[in-house]
Computed example of a mutant assay.
Amino acid sequence: MSGSWLPTAAALAAGAVGLTVLWPLRASSRRAPFIALVVALGLAGYGVYSLVGTPQAATQAPDTGEPATLAAGVAQLQQALARDPQRADGWALLGRSQQALGNLAEANAAYARAVQLAPDEPEVLVEAAQARAQADPARTFDDTALQWLRHAQQLAPDGERAGWLIGIALRQRGQDAEAAATWEALLPRLAPGAAKALRAQIAVARDKAGLPAAAQAASASPSLAVTVSLAPAFAARLQVPADARVFVIARVPGGPPMPVAVQKHALAELPLQVTLDDADSPMPTQPLSAHPEVEVFARLSASGQANRQDGDVDSPIVRVRLPHAGPVPLVIGGP
């Protein structure tokens, strides 16, 4: 039985990866290519597994016991669940498969069974809520779907998908102010592209709610104002080359040393005030706005290199949450 599950699992795994990678295409105007690409990836995963999923595939004739199509795989999965109906993961897999085939009512029923068996699995709850809305003729999130989403958010507060769908459900109910607040809480965790798309939805929700336009400024990408100076006693005895540089660095607390924002300045510019934002991120996939908390410090580099060298002097590290009001003072050579 397990062999018949694996190609279908591979198909759904590929589809899940596609869902993550292609999520920016989910806007209503681009929904058709989004769905087509995700389903295509799922079918490709199914086919790839069928060819290379077992080491013997290259030397043996195809196993005729494996399903030839995704629909056949669904039929085998249904037979397996009839024998072992307490498998929540099996019902969730069946729901994903039925969605890929466009069987929305069947997908909804399968997910409902999965939630019944695993009521505290955030991913299952979110997928089940979305399947329930898709199966509804008006594509609305009813009270049950919204309850599942809120429970998923309680179990996994950092889950972006649950928050996004809760905002949609609230807008469908005319609760535009609550939807805007829900989406705004997601912004610090989103990549710039996704955050930009969400801000457009927030603007619409705020307008519908009659909120003042000035409040929209809170949805701007986080930036961090920093002042940098030398401790007087340290400056009095400082002897460094004329081309020494000062780096202002923000990085993830407890994470890799690669900064999420950095600026380089001449020592002669001190004291100075700078503003770090996404434009200062050396890696587009890890911008400053993607992190709710950073640690920031300044480095005096005699060599002019950002990587720490012998003789470099760092200011004490300051840990801040974003957005942060007011400049963060950094003093090089201070206590």
Rank of each mutant, 00 (worst) to 15 (best):
A197Y: 06
A200V: 14
D143Q: 15
N103G: 07
E127C: 03
Q175L: 13
L149W: 02
A194R: 13
E106S: 12
K208Q: 14
Q98C: 11
S97P: 11
A133F: 04
K208V: 11
W183R: 00
D84Y: 11
R87S: 15
A209T: 04
A107I: 04
L211C: 02
A133Y: 02
G163Q: 07
A133C: 04
L117G: 10
R132Q: 14
A109Y: 00
R113H: 12
G210C: 07
R171Q: 15
A82W: 02
L165G: 06
R96Y: 14
A109N: 10
W164G: 14
A92L: 09
R83V: 11
A213N: 10
E184P: 01
F141C: 11
A112E: 13
Q172A: 12
W91Y: 09
A177Q: 10
A128G: 01
A133H: 00
A194P: 04
A82F: 03
A152Q: 03
R161S: 07
P119L: 05
G210K: 08
L125K: 02
Q130C: 00
L146D: 14
A118S: 15
L187T: 07
Q86N: 15
I166Q: 07
G167Q: 00
A180V: 06
L94H: 05
N103S: 14
P119S: 08
L146A: 15
P119T: 05
T182A: 15
Y111I: 04
P192A: 13
D89P: 09
G90M: 05
I168W: 11
A128H: 01
V115T: 12
A156F: 07
W183G: 07
Q116Y: 01
R206Y: 05
P157R: 06
A80H: 11
A215E: 14
A145F: 01
R199F: 10
A213L: 12
A200K: 12
